[in-house]
Structures are given as C-alpha cells and as structure tokens.
Design a protein around this nucleic acid. Structure first.
Lengths: 336, 336
DNA sequence: ACTAGTATTGGAAACGTTTCCAAGGATTTC
DNA sequence: GAAATCCTTGGAAACGTTTCCAATACTAGT
C-alpha cells in the first residue's frame, strides 16, 4: 500500500482450490503428516509449487504455540566478543529454522527487565542472554519467564537454566603464572563487576596462581567495577600514580583492554615497560608491537553451544551447563 | 512444560471478566481507541494492571497485518562496522516498539535469497540490508518483496528503495590527495566487488584525486574482488612481487585492512616504509605504531538513519536516499 | 414528552494456519 | 459376503487478538 506493488500473497486456501482438495489436506501434506496418500501428496505439492506458496509464519505460530524465534539479549553487540557469538548462534539456529531477535540491554538492569517483557509478549521460544548482573532483581525477571533460558558466561544460583560457561580460571591462571615466572610480582587486575560469573572465575585464576607459589595476591591492584573503557582507563592512571605501581596488568573484556591500552598511551608507557595481557582476544592484537598476549575464549564455539543447548531445552531436555576451555596465547615467543 | 513452571499466561478474556466488561471493550481501552467512557477506561486499566496483562503480540500481528518487526540482513555481524549499525538501528527501532530480526547472508547471494523468503514468511514490516551485490538476481529477490526496504551503502537502479549512502568519494579523495601530496604516485587500491555502490564510490574518489593533478590512476594497482581478509592478503603479496611495487595502499573494509596489515607483516614491511590508509575505522587503529590513518564513515549515524528511513516508509512516506559524509582521519600529524 | 442523533457497548467475524473429530471408502478377516 | 479395521479425507474448532456492525443508553432539540 505504501508501495505501489500489489499484495499478491497466496494462502493455503488458494493451494487447496488449485489442487481441488480441502484446506486441511494441504496442511497435512505440507507439514509432513503421515496419513496422506501418494496422489494427494503429489497434487498438493504441485499446486503449492505452482503458486509459490509459503505458509504464513504468524498464523502457524499462533496456532502451534511456538514462534520458532529466540531472543538474543546482550549488553553490547558492538563488542566483537558478543557479535561473534551472535553470528555463530544465528547460523546454528537457522539450521533448525529458528530466527533470532536481537535486543540490546545496554548494561542496564531496568532495560533488561523491560526487554524481558518485550520478548515475553512476542512469545519467543527461548532467550539466550549474557545478563547484566546476577542480582536478585534479575533473578525475578527470569523467574517470571516461562520459556527456556540459556546464559552466556553467567550462572544464577537456584535457577535451573542452561549455561555456556568459560573456564576462565585455567586461562587466567596460566597467564598470571607466566607473568609471575617472568619476575612480575605486582600484577594489576582490572575487570567488570564482581557479582557475575566471569569476573569471579577470572579472579579465581589470578589468585590461585599467586597462591600456587605461596604468594599473596596484591589486593590493592585489583580493580573491579564494569567493562567500560572509561573505568579501565581511569584505573590505569590511578595505578601508575601509586608509590608502588604494577609492573604488569591483566584486563578483562574488550572495553577494559582498550581502556588500559589508551591509558598507557596517554601516560606514554610503552608495552615493553609494562607487560599487558588482555583477557579477551581482539582481531588485531597480533599487529600491535610488541604483539599482545591474551587469554582467548572462543566466542564462536560459545555461540554454537548456546544454540544447541537452547534447542535441547526446547525439545524437552534437561538444563545443563557446559564448560568451554580458555587458552593463554603467549605472543612473546611467537614473535619469530 | 519442558520446565516445571506453570503456564500462567493472562489473556484479554481474563481482563474482561475481572473488569466485568466485554472483550472488545478491553481491546478498545488498551489500544487507545477514542470511544470509551472514563469509567470503562478506569475499570479496564485497573483490571489489566492487577493481572499484569500483556497482549499477545502474535495475535495482534495476525489481526493487524503488521508484525512491528524489521529484518536486518547483513553479510557479517562480526564486522564491527555492521555491528555498530545494528546496535544503533535496534535502539532507534525499539523506541517505536519495533523489534529486529538479525539474519546473516554470509556474503552469499543464494543465502540472501533464501533469507528473503524467511523474512517474507515471517511477515516482517520491512528489511534493512546491505546487500551482497546489486545484480539482477538480487534485484529479483527484492522485487518479489512487498514490504519497504532500506539499503545500507547500496543503490539499486530502477528500484525505489530508500538508501543510507556514505559519501566515500570525498573521504577517499582527501586521503588519496594527501598521499599524492606526500610524493606517493604508486598507490594501490584494494576493495570489494566492483558492482556495489560503496566500491564504485570509493574508486571514484581515488581516481578523481589523481585526475585533479592531471595524473592517471595506476590501473595495475587496483584490485577489486571481495572484502575478505584472504583476498587482500594475497593481493598484498602480489603487489610487492611487482617490479614496480606501490609505495602506499588504500584498502576498503575491515577484512581488507586486516589482510593488508597481515600481508605486510608477513612480508616484514614496516608501516613506515609503505604508507597504509584504511577506508574504514577500527577501534584500535590509533594504538598501532605508527597510528593508522583512515577514512571514517559513521556507522552509528548510518544505523540511526536507516531506522528513521524505515519508519518513514512504513508510515507511507516516499523512498529517499540520504548521504552521510565521510572524513579522512589523518593520524600522521596527530602523533603529538 | 417525543424523536433524532450521538456516545458507548457487546457480539461476532476475521486474520491464516493446524489439528481434532467424524465420516466415508478401501481392505482385511472370519 | 458381512463385519471389523484401517487409512484417508473434509469440515469445523481453535489459537488470541482487533474491528466491524448492530444494539442500547444517553443527550439534546423542538
């Protein structure tokens, strides 16, 4: 109507008429119902093909009670970590004829809550989300939701959802241990909020590495708040105003890493002077000089598994968590 | 059912019963129909609030013939250029209560075509897309589509869609001119397929810069095929096998830029020896040394406008194109 | 006070499918 | 050869809304 084109949608009734059969028979053929004769199948399939019939997904959803749609709610799709997950997840879901509604929570718990409302009203068959927090507020939003939920690097106690978790501990442990072996004792640790799985898990690796050498982790160098570049940059500045500044830094997330790198640049501190290891991989890290080491979690695999866990839940499977390894990519030696 | 939770969806009928009125009256109140009395409005609103009623979007869509959903189809959401567009677009659309279905075309025309089918069957109210190509094949897919379409940096002749276009010409012109002014004559140009607006438009700026100085652009240094990192890397290798290799390179798109940078690294060519300017901005370009200059197009603004153009079309507006400026970010001097 | 007109309301059709149910025809079994 | 069974088919209800239409209640005009 807005456009001049004529609305030439073909309905199941048109197919039925052309094939000279009842509507219900067309539906049976097209949905692959068993009880249809060969001749009926042929007639209907031909008619449907001739007319280029495509069932109306809306009506199907309403009738079937399933939309074949998954809500994908994350903090920030601009973050390549999330966009890679989104991509592989979408590809995997599409194989099973599911579509994905993308919705940003922008790191706000209230936006997240209202998004839950939107997705509920749209009757998505499930939600895949990296929640803003694991607070009770969020827990309530989740509880009011009847469809299955798969969490990305989050874990809500007392709630039976599936989760795709990364084994940050081992990767961060290796990275920290490496730094300690290089003689660094004062290693700063900058990451997001303490009340989410990913941060706790990373911190765990960091502390365990110290403890494995009977050392105490330097509490004054641990800075946890959010994943913003701003926070990480400010903390970097603060760290180097200390009388006893760090000689190495670990920072989690792309935002944090950027903050540290920009902070160091502003302070005119070279990456040869202060050792920096990012707790997430970024496509061009290898191009920096010296090449940046990082702890790599595998977002592509995460997305794929998120989709798989979701489909399992939808098909009546039990919630479960899977753990994906992280690897410490040491680019010190790789500089051949 | 899969989950133990009871399905406690509240329907319009429940609200009607609680308020002691007819279903149609509830609907009128909730959709803001004018012909309702004050007392009716109060009764219904109270009942709806008490029960926490949220209309079923599916049934609404079916009846209204509008899903309030926009299909967002792009080649590669992992590309930050697209993910930034997606983000700002989604935020803008949500303000008007539209949701966005994300769907990857993976740079394949046939996938794109099948995606059109998916979106059509899902009855999206419109599609925002950066098409794989502007070929007649694609044109046919588009023509079979009745809902409005907004193109991102694409322009299909003879088809009246809205477009958000970037003025690459001026940015690339400035960049090329700058290189020429620095004494570079042999400037290579690597970009995606020739049959899309963005490439033609960039090439235009490149050639115009040469011509403005009465020089002929070096045709042997122009390499157009796709935006993959692979292609750009291979071409970089080939370029430096030439007897008369380039002294500077322009490459369009994130993939291409990565390909060139990695290619140069493999060739052990320093960014001080060969001048490289990227035709897209990437978050950490400023951290490389020397800092990378780039032509910046503004994806955030693009996404916002894409959403606006879409809403205009949906509301019966005429298709139109808007042109967004690009800027040459020279990081040579900025290295204070 | 009676009629014409208007504001408000309830009932039912419609959106486009799937699926239940019953009926009819074909096949089998005794 | 008739009864019982199975397979196939068509008709209609259902999914949860919006909106058309007709009916009622109310207002105002003479």
């Amino acid at each position: 109507m807005a456009k001049g084109k004529k609305e030439n949608r073909v309905h199941i009734e048109d197919v039925a008429k052309r094939a000279g059969v009842a509507i219900s028979s067309v539906s049976r053929v097209l949905t692959g119902h068993k009880a249809v004769s060969e001749s009926m199948r042929n007639k209907v399939e031909k008619a449907a093909l001739d007319l280029g019939y495509q069932p109306d997904h809306l009506a199907q959803s309403l009738r079937r009670g399933s939309t074949k749609t998954i809500g994908f709610m994350i903090r920030d799709i601009m973050n390549p970590f999330f966009s890679i997950i989104a991509q592989s997840c979408e590809i995997e879901l599409r194989k099973s004829h599911y579509s994905m509604i993308l919705i940003n929570s922008a790191g706000s718990e209230s936006t997240e809550k209202s998004n839950f409302g939107v997705l509920k009203s749209r009757r998505v068959d499930g939600i895949i989300s990296s929640l803003v927090s694991e607070s009770s507020f969020t827990k309530n939003s989740l509880n009011s939701f009847t469809a299955p939920i798969v969490l990305l690097d989050r874990e809500i106690s007392g709630l039976t959802t599936s989760s795709v978790l990364c084994d940050h501990t081992s990767g961060v442990f290796d990275a920290t241990k490496y730094l300690l072996s290089q003689g660094h004792k004062r290693i700063a640790f900058i990451s997001g909020p303490e009340n989410i799985y990913v941060t706790r898990n990373r911190l765990d690796g960091y502390e365990k590495a110290y403890e494995s050498l009977n050392l105490k982790p330097p509490k004054d160098l641990i800075r946890l708040k959010d994943f913003s570049e701003k926070f990480a940059k400010e903390e970097t500045h603060k760290l180097f105003k200390m009388s006893n500044p760090p000689t190495a830094i670990l920072a989690g997330g792309i935002g944090s890493s950027g903050g540290v790198l920009h902070g160091l640049k502003e302070l005119k501190i070279d990456l040869n002077q202060v050792k920096f290891i990012a707790l997430d991989e970024w496509p061009f890290f290898d191009l920096l000089s010296p090449g940046l080491s990082s702890v790599h979690r595998d977002p592509e695999t995460m997305g794929k598994y998120a989709a798989k866990l979701m489909l399992e839940l939808i098909n009546g499977g039990k919630p479960k968590s899977i753990l994906i390894p992280t690897t410490f990519k040491n680019r010190d030696r790789a500089s051949k």
